[in-house]
């Protein structure tokens, strides 16, 4: 199958620098780890937290945050290649545009999963309770949402290709509200009603809730179902939008 081969070629190209220099995997993790240490320590002091429970609530959200951060690099890498000329060189080869998008995104997803595993290993000694099957499904869900985030980020890079700064402005402006309104950092239970309404239209909210349920070992239930639906829908939309955008790249 040609699409799979081409995606593999693009993926192999993207991932090779990381294999040659594995320490780079750690760089992207800095922010979530700092948040984990600072927030996590704070959370263990609040009433509904306490001991391992704080981690159980906080870590799944951090993985989503890691996913959001990783997408910055998907779009950023595409942006540098667009301005530098190496994307043009790839675009003139017979490799399809969608393979370029999916291959790139797949690399970000693999990185995301690798970083997530590292984070879980780090929190294990601090009382994080691991439900193996739930965690595996949670990782899969994380990969799916990562595809969507990576693809949307690439689409944004293409749309903003003539004003590079616009890419960062949009990405940064979207990132924090998305984080806050998905309940990654703080629970939205006591939020004003308009915030809760907004969080209900944020696809990430459902994914975060599903991640929490899965890491708690709940494999069934509505939150997992909604999370999976939301992530799959988001990923499909992202790939469609991203593939469309990739066709504009040369213009």
């Amino acid at each position: 199958m040609r699409f799979a081969t081409e995606t593999g070629i693009v993926f192999a190209r993207e991932v090779r620098p990381n294999l040659r220099n594995p320490v780079a995997i750690l760089f992207g993790m800095a922010q979530p780890v700092v948040f984990l240490v600072l927030f996590g320590s704070l959370l263990s002091g609040v009433p509904w937290g306490g001991d391992g429970a704080a981690w159980q609530w906080f870590v799944p959200g951090m993985l989503i945050m890691l996913g959001l951060g990783g997408t910055v690099s998907a779009g950023y890498m595409l942006m540098t290649e667009m301005t530098g000329g190496s994307l043009d060189r790839m675009l003139v080869t017979p490799v399809s545009r969608s393979a370029m998008l999916v291959g790139r995104t797949a690399k970000e997803v693999v990185m995301l999963v690798a970083q997530s595993v590292l984070i879980i290993l780090v929190v294990l000694p601090f009382g994080f309770e691991l439900h193996v099957v739930g965690a595996l499904v949670a990782m899969l869900l994380l990969a799916v949402i990562g595809v969507g985030l990576g693809a949307f980020s690439c689409a944004l890079a293409v749309v903003a290709r003539k004003q590079e700064s616009a890419f960062y402005v949009v990405q940064q402006t979207l990132m924090f509200p998305l984080l806050m309104l998905s309940g990654v950092l703080l629970p939205l239970d006591n939020a004003p009603s308009w915030m809760r309404a907004l969080s209900r239209v944020n696809p990430l909210t459902y994914v975060v809730e599903a991640e929490r349920a899965l890491f708690a070992g709940q494999l069934t239930g509505t939150s997992v179902l909604y999370g999976v639906l939301s992530a799959v829908g988001f990923a499909v939309a992202g790939v469609l939008v991203g593939a469309r955008a990739m066709r504009l790249t040369g213009d």
């Binding site: 620098p17 060189r89 080869t93």
Partner: peptide, 26 residues
């Protein structure tokens, strides 16, 4: 074949890796 005005090789990729990738792309 196309040699554009910009740099065909991505800055973070090794020289030989890029050449091999290019062959695979074709």
């Amino acid at each position: 074949g196309y040699v554009g005005q910009g740099n065909g090789a991505g800055p973070y990729f090794r020289v030989r890796d890029e050449l091999v990738t290019q062959g695979r792309c074709y």
